[in-house]
Design a protein around this nucleic acid. Structure first.
Lengths: 160, 160
DNA sequence: TGCTCATGATAACAGCGTAAACATTGGAGG
DNA sequence: CCTCCAATGTTTACGCTGTTATCATGAGCA
């Protein structure tokens, strides 16, 4: 359902109806709606990390791999708009400090790549990490919001 | 009210109550809730543009002025979280193509500064504009979402 | 066999956005 | 000065939402 509608237009009752179960049954498995959404977001975060790792490994890692994780980030957002938004709209899910191993891959990749880039080119790893993350996150958000035209070539040119 | 709560936890009825008026009176002035929110967002966009222009002029424009518009962008987001989010959550309000002169200042500043930066340092103006916008937008969003620590020094170092 | 616990259903509540119908009132036009 | 209309407000109502309290069922284990 997240593939077709955005997360906050999705009601608990509608979801229960789609599953074929009463509205209140959801409360046997999650304390409230927010908890359900957080669980979905955590799953999405794992998928994002996996996509980034795959993209990085496809070009053999290194600096090129770092760039590819960024492009994969934007592509993932465009391919899964509602899920991507949900990930960052979940207050209980801080990407960097998530407990489960499920959600930590994307963040670990960023830290490692930023450290390597700082070693290669100079600069502080933390600043490098924030800059890279902000660039791809902003690009993803602006494209999702329709503020910047969705254009594969532009993604490649902007992330370098 | 946007200064204290976020936009989508704010109900029409509560707003009407605060004004001291019946719930349905709002419909004499706006066709629906979304239209009201869009009007608020447009006002916010004007404030953002004004803040950026002020910041740029304070350092005499040029490349330093461009940097200051970016910092002002992030600072505005942190100072007005709900309003900033509302601006980019309004589907009817495309920042670049907004009709009213009210909302166009921020976008005009970006275009002009990106063109100037491209003339100084090379690169395509469009790509430069998107890169700059994405960087500050991403930084603002990540800080608002609690993914990156709010740190004035980090803002300065990341935007350069 | 009997008990417990996980999982379900029903009914109910307050709050929401919105529509329809009705009331008031201040100012423009004769 | 009077009349009428448009602007603005109110009341009532509808279906939807998240959530709670209460009750039913049935599988697994003592």
């Amino acid at each position: 359902m997240l593939g077709e509608r955005d997360a906050d237009s999705l009601s608990l009752r509608e979801l229960a109806r789609a599953v074929g179960v009463s509205a209140t049954s959801v409360y046997r498995h999650f304390p409230d709606k927010e908890a359900l959404m957080t669980a979905l977001a955590l799953e999405g975060l794992a998928q994002l990390g996996a996509a980034q790792r795959t993209a990085s490994e496809a070009v053999g890692g290194g600096a090129a791999g770092f760039r590819e994780t960024g492009r994969a980030y934007v592509r993932f957002a465009l391919a899964n708009p509602a899920l991507f938004r949900l990930i960052f709209a979940s207050p209980a899910l801080l990407v960097g400090g998530v407990k489960s191993d499920l959600g930590s891959e994307a963040h670990d990749l960023l830290q490692a790549n930023a450290a390597a880039a700082a070693a290669r080119g100079g600069g502080k790893p933390e600043v490098q990490a924030v800059q890279a993350w902000a660039l791809v996150h902003g690009l993803a958000m602006l494209m999702l919001d329709g503020q910047v035209a969705v254009d594969d070539e532009l993604i490649d040119k902007a992330i370098c």
